[in-house]
């Protein structure tokens, strides 16, 4: 029998530390598979954020740089500018990218930095125990909005793809979800397209992945993915928001 599915060489043997059912593991695999299938193994550098994915440098089987919280896209700018022949990806969570790192991501996009940002939006701060994130939904509970996010007190979720799509620097921006097998397959296509746009030097590319956080959402893993599909996708519609020729 032929192998239909096998773990990619672009992931190390280190087991993921992520919680059971956490979609970070899926996101990591998609990025690693894309790198392998597109032949970037020998010229790829990844930037790990601060957040649940802070240990990503143990998982991606390539040169990795650990960035300060929020600064991954600035670090990516620095390493890509001096090494343009390398494929550079920054892997960031919603707190990392859309809160403390908002200035960095907006300006990296506006400058059209030829990097690929993998943006994991699970609407919560996971590593630190479930605080509200910039993408926490209205009414969604967190340890810092225990009665549910109230826009009058805590503001409204930030739609990063729509926001960055208003800029001229980005070449490709898509929002996908990791909520079921077909969505995950679509997500992988988006990652490969973003990497292809980077390879062609077309500009800044970003794939936002709607993800789950079973532990801090206090849901079972499959219920959490239903929440992604039924609740998150209402506020964060899937689709391509920027695609230059």
């Amino acid at each position: 029998m032929a192998t239909v599915f096998k773990k990619t060489q672009m992931l190390t043997d280190t087991p993921f530390h992520y919680c059971p059912g956490c979609t970070h593991g899926i996101a990591h695999r998609l990025v690693a598979e894309a790198i392998e299938e597109m032949g970037f193994q020998n010229n790829v550098i990844g930037i790990a954020p601060v957040g649940c994915a802070v240990f990503a440098y143990n998982y991606f089987n390539c040169d990795m740089i650990e960035a300060a919280h929020g600064r991954a896209s600035a670090v990516a700018t620095g390493v890509k500018r001096v090494n343009p022949q390398n494929i550079v990806f920054a892997y960031q969570g919603d707190g990392d990218l859309a809160s403390i790192g908002m200035a960095e991501i907006v300006h990296a996009a506006a400058r059209g930095e030829k990097i690929t940002v993998i943006f994991i939006n699970n609407a919560i701060y996971g590593m630190t125990g479930g605080q509200m994130a910039p993408t926490t939904l209205e009414g969604q509970k967190s340890t810092t909005c225990v009665y549910g996010r109230d826009s009058l007190l805590n503001g409204n979720p930030i739609k990063v793809c729509e926001l960055l799509a208003t800029l001229d620097g980005p070449a490709y921006i898509e929002r996908v979800a990791l909520s079921d097998a077909s969505s995950v397959r679509k997500a992988k296509k988006a990652v490969k397209k973003a990497f292809e746009y980077q390879r062609q030097g077309k500009g800044f590319t970003l794939v936002e992945m709607l993800s789950s956080c079973p532990t801090n959402w206090k849901m079972t893993p499959d219920k959490a993915l239903e929440y992604v599909k039924n609740d998150m996708q209402k506020i964060f519609p899937l689709g391509v928001f920027k695609e230059v020729e």
Binding site: K7, F16, G25, I26
Partner: peptide, 15 residues
């Protein structure tokens, strides 16, 4: 589908 949805690369599939 199982392998695609597995967050921990637990499953290999052959056909």
């Amino acid at each position: 589908n199982c392998a695609v949805m597995c967050p921990d690369c637990v499953i290999e599939v052959e056909r």
